[in-house]
Design a protein around this nucleic acid. Structure first.
Length: 477
RNA sequence: GACCCCUUCGUCUAUCGGUUAGGACACAAGAUUUUCAUUCUUGUAAGAGGGGUUCGAUUCCCCUAGGGGUCGCCA
């Protein structure tokens, strides 16, 4: 097999979305698994849809997720440029060849003419395709109109009645006949190529070995195959990925889902979880494992194990997986990724040791990064007591527990866990109160809420002076 | 409408002719726990339908049905 070279080829029309991420990830994994090259190519041939800053954004997202690009617009490489709008000469040159061989022809039909033709075909219940009226123009007329500078496009002349057969690594052998194939526009009237021309030309010159793309491209593969044939090139291996679906099984769309990768990161999903989850949307290893690091995915990924059927994007499982990673990742890494949410929440950070203790407790109970910051709040700036909480604290039983602690708890210093345990037990025995009745008042006084971590953790976080402060407050109220 | 792709628990999936059809999420029940959570155990739940091929089909073939994709001077 020739050297593996794969490209992720988004158009700069917005943010990286989940479908794009999955394609990019499979490209990346396949390249890394085989020791091949991962290329980024920007397909900006539709000037009307270009979004300023989208290229930088796309690259930024891939970088944030750790999908390192081997060749691309910013990275460079031996087969550049990697932005299609900078390759116009190359496309025009190939179009010249197609024109010369008679495999392509100029078409002077205006968009209005075409629209009218389509609606007529539609109303007659016919198959909608270009009727080739410009193919039959005389050579002299074509020449004259060209010289007059008349607006035109270049169309690929598809063969009538021809069966295309190709192997797809995921789907096996696929057969299509071209009797329905339209004479695809290759070069638009503004001189820019369409996707079909640009992709084929670039894939050839960039020596792409495997075209990995979404299933929506499957039905235009015969056009691409024909183009390879006309140009005298050897086509790459085809890999059409199953679609990612909305809950109603239609193609994933922003109408029904949040599809932007950036927005998941902003919601506080960990990149590790996002990557792991997206990898499993259509691929599964040979065993029952579900949790994979990027390195492990690189090691185990194979295109042969990619599924054929589309996969519904299930947020519930992503949430579960994010929780797993919150607990699994090194503590410092979780803290690093959680830090921005402390800032956003206006929560001032305690000293690093305390922060570690807080996050250790928080990660057990949270799903998303911002929840960690929210959870920390009860230690750092507790909410005011609710009426309900106040009522619990006001009961004689609660008051006696709090009193006992004010009297028996050292004012400062650090309590060893064993000392604290002994103290807690002593209080329980002396007061004759245990279980919920004993712990709840303490938690309410110290955290202003009934739920939270165990007492030793709370004590370690708050420290004795602060605890005394809170206890006295609770006694007063 | 035409062409093409797809079809195992609600969801993501394993199975490459012989399994009590396995795992994960979710859900339910229970255990652990001072609370919340974590963790653990258990349970509910699937081969679209019909024909073949075969000693034997979830697995191979055909048909039907359902779902999806594509049919732009968008990618």
């Amino acid at each position: 097999m020739r050297e593996v070279r794969v490209r992720f080829a988004p158009s700069p029309t917005g943010f990286l979305h989940l479908g794009g991420l999955r394609t990019a990830l499979y490209d990346y994994l396949f390249a890394r698994h085989t020791g091949g090259t991962f290329i980024l190519r920007i397909e900006d041939t539709d000037r009307s849809r270009i979004v300023p800053g989208a290229i930088e954004n796309l690259i930024g997202s891939l970088h944030r997720l750790g999908l390192d690009i081997d060749e691309g617009p910013l990275t460079g490489g031996a087969y550049g440029p990697y932005v299609q709008s900078e390759r116009l000469e190359i496309y025009r040159c190939e179009v010249r060849r197609l024109l010369d061989s008679g495999d392509a022809y100029p078409c002077f039909c205006s968009p209005d003419t075409l629209a009218q033709m389509r609606s007529e075909q539609l109303s007659r219940g016919e198959f909608v395709k270009y009727d080739r009226r410009c193919l039959h123009l005389s050579r002299e007329e074509v020449q004259a109109r060209l010289e007059r500078g008349e607006a035109h496009v270049i169309r690929l002349k598809m063969p009538d009645q021809r069966r295309f057969r190709f192997d797809d690594i995921i789907r096996g052998q696929v057969e299509m006949n071209t009797s329905q194939s339209d004479d695809q526009v290759l070069l638009k009237s503004d001189g820019f190529p369409t996707y079909h021309l640009a992709a084929v030309v670039d894939d050839h010159y960039m020596k792409i070995s495997h075209v990995i793309r979404g299933e929506e491209w499957l039905s235009s593969t015969p056009k691409h195959l024909w183009l390879y044939e006309c140009l005298g090139w050897e086509p790459p291996k085809w890999v059409h990925l199953p679609l990612i679906l909305n809950p109603d099984r239609s193609k994933l769309s922003k109408r029904m889902n949040d599809v932007s990768v950036e927005s998941y990161l902003e919601k506080g999903y960990l990149k590790e979880a996002l990557l792991n989850f997206v990898a499993l949307l259509g691929w599964h290893g040979a065993d029952d494992r579900e949790i994979y690091s990027l390195e492990e995915l690189c090691r185990e990924f194979s295109l042969e194990r990619v599924n054929k059927a589309g996969a519904v994007f299930d947020l519930t499982k992503l949430d579960w997986m994010n929780g797993i990673y919150l607990r699994k990742l090194p503590l410092d890494e979780v803290i690093r990724q959680a830090l921005p949410w402390f800032e956003k929440g206006g929560i001032s950070l305690p000293d690093p040791g305390i922060l570690r203790t807080i996050v250790t407790a928080a990660r057990e109970r949270c799903t998303l990064l911002p929840e960690i910051a929210a959870y920390s709040k009860m230690f750092l700036s507790p909410a005011p007591l609710t009426a309900e909480e106040a009522e619990i604290l006001a009961s004689p039983q609660s008051q006696s527990v709090l009193h006992w602690y004010v009297e028996h708890l050292p004012r400062e210093g650090i309590l060893e866990k064993a000392e604290l345990d002994a103290l807690v037990k002593a209080g329980m025995a002396e007061l004759g109160i245990k279980g919920k009745d004993y712990y709840t008042p303490l938690r309410s006084a110290l955290l202003h809420q009934p739920h939270g971590p165990d007492l030793p953790t709370i004590f370690a976080i708050l420290g004795l002076p602060r605890i005394h402060e809170l206890l006295r407050e609770a006694l007063r109220s």
